[in-house]
Design a protein around this nucleic acid. Structure first.
Lengths: 240, 240
DNA sequence: CGGGGAATTGAGGCTTCTCAAGCTTAGTGG
DNA sequence: CCACTAAGCTTGAGAAGCCTCAATTCCCCG
C-alpha cells in the first residue's frame, strides 16, 4: 500500500479534502507541496505517545494509523482509525498532552498539513474534525449495541465509505491491511471470536477477505427494516 | 436539580468554562446575560433530532442531556452526556444535519452560548470540544474493553470529574438523576445486569446510591497497577 | 527450506442476556 | 387520607454469546 518508491503522491488525500470543502488552486498547491515532504512510518511505530506533547496538524497520505488506549493490565482498545486524507488536528494549546497514542497499524506515510488563510483548507479541516466525531459516535453505537457479526460488517462499511472519499476503493471492495487481532482490539472482541465470525460471513457469502482485500458479495449489507421484520436468511444490519 | 423558580443562575456553567480557559469580565458578563434567557427542557424532550438542522451553539445550565442513537429495531445507545457547563458546538455549515438526537434525560435548562471576540470564551469553547473528544475516547475504551462492573465505576468517576468542574459535587459523591435503564443504554448493558452489578458494588461497600445521590465509600476506585497484581479483595479498575 | 506471525480449530466456562414475575415508591384522584 | 397507578427497581431461571486456553495449520519471507 506504500507509494511507488521515490515519487510521493498525496495518495488521494487531496481528493478527500476536496470532497469535504471546495479548495482553490492555492490550497491544492500547498497540499501538494506538503506531500513532497512525507514522513514514512513503519508498522508499529508511534506517531504520538499518550502523555507527550502533541505534534502539529498532520495529514495521512497512505496506510492506516490507529488511536490507541492501553490498559495497565495489557488490554488494548483502538479508539479510531486514520486513513488517507484523515487529519490529526492542531492542539488547542501548546501545553496540551496527548490522551491517547497514535500508532501505525501498517506501514504508513504522513505529512504536515498546511494551512493558508481561513478559506477552503480551513473549512475542510473543520469538516474533517466534525466527521471524526461522527465516526466516534458510530464506534460507540457499534460497541455498545451491536453483536460481533454486526460490528464487523458495520465497520467494514464505514471503512469503505471513508476510503472511498480518498478514491481508494472499488464499489464492492476495500483494501484491508490489518490483522484479525487488530480488528478485535478495535471492535471489543477477541481475535478468536473475530475469526469465527468472519468465517460465518464467508460461509453465508456475505464477504470474502483474501490477499489484503475485503469484497462484499451479494446484496451486501442489508439493513434491517425494523423489529417486525420477517426472519432473514442472512443476518441483517439494523439501520443507524 | 432545577434552579429555584424565578431567578436563573448559571448553575456552575461559568465556573466550568473558567476552569477550561481564563475569562475576562466581558466574557463572564456575556454568559450571565445568556443565562437570563434560559430554556427549560422537560425530561424526554428532544433538543435536536437526528437528521434535522442543528441549532446554534448551546450551553447547558442544569440537568442532564444525552446524545442518543436509535436503532430501527428499538436498540438504543447513549453516545454521551451533557451536563452543566457542557457546550454543544456551532455547526460547521448552515446545511449541516444532526447525526444523533439530543434529548433531556431529566428536566434540564439550557441557554444560547454567547461568543464575543476570539479570546477567553472562544478558547474555552475550543477546549470544551477537545474535552468532549476525550470523553468519547474514554467511552469507547469503556465499552470495548471493560467489564460491566468496571464500566459503571469508571463512568461514575468520569461524571464525578465532569460535574466537579461546575462545582456540582462533593468530594465523594455526585448527583445522579438517571434511571438504571438509562445507564444501561449508555454502558451497553441491560438494565437487569446494571441492577445486579450495582448490588454487588453496594454489597462490597464500594458505593451507595440513594435519593438521587451516588456516594463513593472506602478507598473508592482503586486502579489496578498492572497484570502482576496480587488478587484484590474488591474488584479493581485498570488504569487509563 | 526453515522460521515466525497470523489464521484456524476445539473444548469448556463465565459474563451477560432474555423473559417473566414480584416488589417498591411516588404521585393522583376520590 | 388512602386506594390506585405507573414507573422503576429487584429477583429468578435458563439460554446465548463471547471468552479462555491451547494446540494446530497456513502462509509469507528470508
Amino acid at each position: 500500500m506504500l507509494m511507488t518508491n521515490t515519487v510521493t503522491t498525496d495518495g488521494g488525500a487531496i481528493s478527500r479534502l476536496e470532497a469535504l470543502a471546495p479548495l482553490d488552486d492555492a490550497d491544492r498547491h500547498a497540499l501538494r507541496l506538503a506531500a513532497q515532504n512525507p514522513q514514512r512510518l513503519p508498522v508499529s511505530r508511534d506517531l504520538i505517545a499518550a502523555g507527550h506533547p502533541l505534534a502539529g496538524r498532520v495529514i495521512v497520505l497512505d496506510g492506516w494509523l490507529g488511536r490507541i488506549r492501553l490498559f495497565s493490565d495489557g488490554r488494548r482498545q483502538i479508539l479510531g482509525f486514520l486513513v488517507t486524507g484523515d487529519v490529526i488536528p492542531e492542539p488547542d494549546t501548546a501545553e496540551a498532552r496527548a490522551t491517547s497514542t497514535i500508532t501505525a497499524l501498517c506501514d504508513a506515510v504522513i505529512a504536515p498539513a498546511p494551512l493558508i488563510g481561513s478559506g477552503g483548507l480551513a473549512r475542510a479541516y473543520a469538516v474533517s474534525r466534525t466527521l471524526d466525531e461522527t465516526y466516534l459516535h458510530r464506534h460507540i453505537a457499534r460497541l455498545g449495541r451491536m453483536t460481533a457479526y454486526e460490528r464487523i460488517l458495520d465497520w467494514f462499511m464505514e471503512m469503505h465509505e471513508r476510503l472511498t472519499l480518498a478514491g481508494r476503493t472499488e464499489p464492492a471492495s476495500l483494501p484491508m491491511p490489518l490483522t484479525q487481532e487488530t480488528l478485535a482490539d478495535a471492535l471489543g472482541l477477541t481475535s478468536v471470536h473475530v475469526n469465527r465470525t468472519l468465517q460465518s460471513m464467508r460461509r453465508n457469502g456475505t464477504i470474502e477477505w483474501r490477499g489484503g482485500i475485503v469484497r462484499f458479495r451479494g446484496r451486501v449489507p442489508v439493513p434491517a427494516t425494523g423489529p417486525a421484520d420477517a426472519p432473514a436468511t442472512h443476518p441483517t444490519m439494523p439501520t443507524a
